[in-house]
């Protein structure tokens, strides 16, 4: 039987779908009996989803148009180089 600490250590692998069948079964057995770990896994899923959602939040800024124009105007300056 996994301890709560062992469940927490495997939380990311579980929610990212990277556990094998046996490890997944061990996790499910623990989670069925442990409210604390069930809550923790739920917190980690929410954290994963909010982290993804935060990527472009507030990304549009007033200065964007100026910056975009500045970048586009520099593209033909000088010679291309490797990248």
């Amino acid at each position: 039987m996994l301890s709560c600490k062992e469940v927490a250590d495997r939380a990311s692998a579980m929610i990212d779908g990277e556990l094998g069948a046996w490890e997944m079964l061990q996790m499910r057995m623990h989670l069925a009996m442990c409210k604390g770990c069930a809550r923790f896994i739920s917190q980690m899923r929410i954290t994963r989803d909010l982290t993804a959602a935060a990527n472009t939040s507030g990304a549009v800024q007033d200065t964007d148009d100026t910056r975009i124009s500045a970048i586009l105007s520099q593209r033909h300056d000088g010679k291309p180089h490797g990248g």
């Binding site: 709560c4 927490a8 604390g36 739920s42 929410i46």
Partner: peptide
Amino acid sequence: LAAAFDGRGRWKDMPELW
């Protein structure tokens, strides 16, 4: 989480329901 568990690897405090 280093300090979240007791010596037997159990939660010292139950995680919150978010």
